[in-house]
Simulated scan of single mutants.
Amino acid sequence: YPSLTHPSVPLNSSTHHLHFCCDITFLCFLGTSHQGGYSHEAVVYALQVCGIRHIDTAKRYGCESFLSKAIKESGVKREDLWITTKLWHSDYGYENTKQACLESCKQLGVEYLDLYLVHWPDAQVPGKSNREVRAETWRAMEELYERGICRSIGVSNFLINHLEQLKEDCQITPHVNQVEYHPFHRPQELVEYCRSRNIIFEGYCPLAKGEALSHPDIIQLAKKYGKTPAQICIRWSIQNGIVTIPKSTKPERIQENCEVFDFSLAEDDVSIINGMHDGRHVSWDPTPVV
């Protein structure tokens, strides 16, 4: 990402101070969502005890103002955090986007965002094509980036065709594409496309909303390595070079999700999990969006 100052974390590091870095793209963060509720205790625990420094949220999740309170309580300095939030489609459009960004900053209690993402490729604006609205929205994102209000800008749930259109219509390539990524959904063509264009690929739902945890192969690997199924899934995602965003409202699960830097999966075992891909979505499917 641009404007990064935090030190990198070696792959075999046991530290839980998980910062973004320029040359390593396989770290874990605290994800929030509109499903499963919000836990103030869990966020403060993640920041104070686990040393997590990236918070991923969105206007859609409805917890930006709650996060502001948790960050203040944690005592962690703003400059030590990497805060990501997202623009919901109801705010797409040039002027709406700029206003929504400022409102998210206000809700989060910050003067700038480390990363701002366009949440979904479907604009749902009557009388305008999705492509037209995405381009208009992205021009506002570019302006927010140039003004320093957003230190990085990106998209979420965008497929290759959406990214190609954006490339033709706008000036700045998205810095990030955040997409569903787990053992059952490994969109390798999209991953390779992003890498070829220096777009960092972030993966959400690394546990497939829990569906992967009961798979016999995952359970067997957990026994082999003396780890939990969740740790196997997160470690697999990391070793595939994916910026990985697990979510939990339980402090003990957040701690568990962090403990993935003291072991490595053998190449054969990574291949076993790679082979579980069947293309299923446990979240939204952007494929029908033109």
Rank of each mutant, 00 (worst) to 15 (best):
residue 270 V to E: 07
residue 152 S to R: 08
residue 275 G to K: 08
residue 32 T to C: 09
residue 192 E to M: 15
residue 263 F to E: 07
residue 45 Y to C: 08
residue 87 L to P: 01
residue 170 C to L: 12
residue 209 K to S: 05
residue 198 N to H: 14
residue 32 T to D: 07
residue 92 Y to A: 02
residue 279 G to F: 11
residue 255 Q to A: 12
residue 269 D to W: 10
residue 4 L to R: 07
residue 286 P to K: 09
residue 43 V to Q: 03
residue 159 L to P: 06
residue 236 W to R: 07
residue 72 K to S: 14
residue 235 R to E: 04
residue 237 S to C: 13
residue 240 N to C: 15
residue 270 V to S: 10
residue 222 A to C: 12
residue 286 P to W: 09
residue 76 V to F: 07
residue 148 G to H: 03
residue 268 D to E: 15
residue 119 H to L: 05
residue 199 I to D: 03
residue 288 P to C: 02
residue 151 R to D: 10
residue 178 Q to E: 15
residue 160 I to Y: 11
residue 150 C to M: 04
residue 176 V to T: 07
residue 263 F to H: 08
residue 131 R to P: 00
residue 283 S to G: 14
residue 275 G to R: 05
residue 65 S to L: 11
residue 246 P to E: 07
residue 273 I to D: 03
residue 57 T to K: 09
residue 257 N to E: 00
residue 123 A to E: 07
residue 100 A to C: 05
residue 81 L to G: 04
residue 139 R to P: 01
residue 260 V to M: 00
residue 211 E to V: 11
residue 212 A to E: 06
residue 59 K to V: 09
residue 232 I to Y: 00
residue 101 C to R: 01
residue 32 T to H: 03
residue 213 L to E: 14
residue 134 R to D: 06
residue 117 L to M: 11
residue 284 W to G: 06
residue 266 A to K: 14
residue 6 H to L: 13
residue 199 I to Y: 03
residue 200 I to W: 04
residue 234 I to C: 00
residue 246 P to R: 02
residue 50 C to G: 10
residue 58 A to G: 05
residue 154 G to C: 11
residue 80 D to A: 04
residue 272 I to H: 00
residue 244 T to W: 11
residue 122 D to T: 01
residue 215 H to P: 01
residue 33 S to M: 04
residue 126 P to K: 13
residue 24 I to L: 13
residue 260 V to A: 01
residue 83 I to E: 08
residue 275 G to N: 14
residue 260 V to P: 00
residue 11 L to F: 14
residue 175 H to I: 02
residue 243 V to D: 04
residue 228 T to P: 00
residue 50 C to I: 03
residue 47 L to Q: 09
residue 263 F to S: 06
residue 154 G to Y: 05
residue 41 E to P: 06
residue 140 A to G: 12
residue 93 G to M: 08
residue 67 L to N: 10
residue 202 E to L: 10
residue 72 K to M: 08
residue 281 H to W: 14
residue 238 I to H: 04
residue 183 P to Q: 02
residue 268 D to K: 15
residue 101 C to Q: 06
residue 16 H to G: 12
residue 5 T to Y: 10
residue 277 H to W: 09
residue 242 I to C: 03
residue 194 C to Q: 08
residue 196 S to C: 09
residue 266 A to W: 10
residue 199 I to W: 04
residue 203 G to V: 06
residue 131 R to Q: 15
residue 186 R to V: 12
residue 136 E to W: 03
residue 240 N to W: 02
residue 6 H to V: 02
residue 213 L to S: 09
residue 288 P to M: 09
residue 28 C to R: 10
residue 107 Q to A: 14
residue 268 D to N: 15
residue 154 G to M: 04
residue 16 H to R: 14
residue 235 R to T: 09
residue 222 A to G: 05
residue 267 E to H: 07
residue 100 A to Y: 02
residue 262 D to H: 08
residue 128 K to M: 12
residue 271 S to R: 15
residue 145 Y to I: 06
residue 17 H to I: 14
residue 34 H to Q: 13
residue 221 L to A: 06
residue 121 P to A: 09
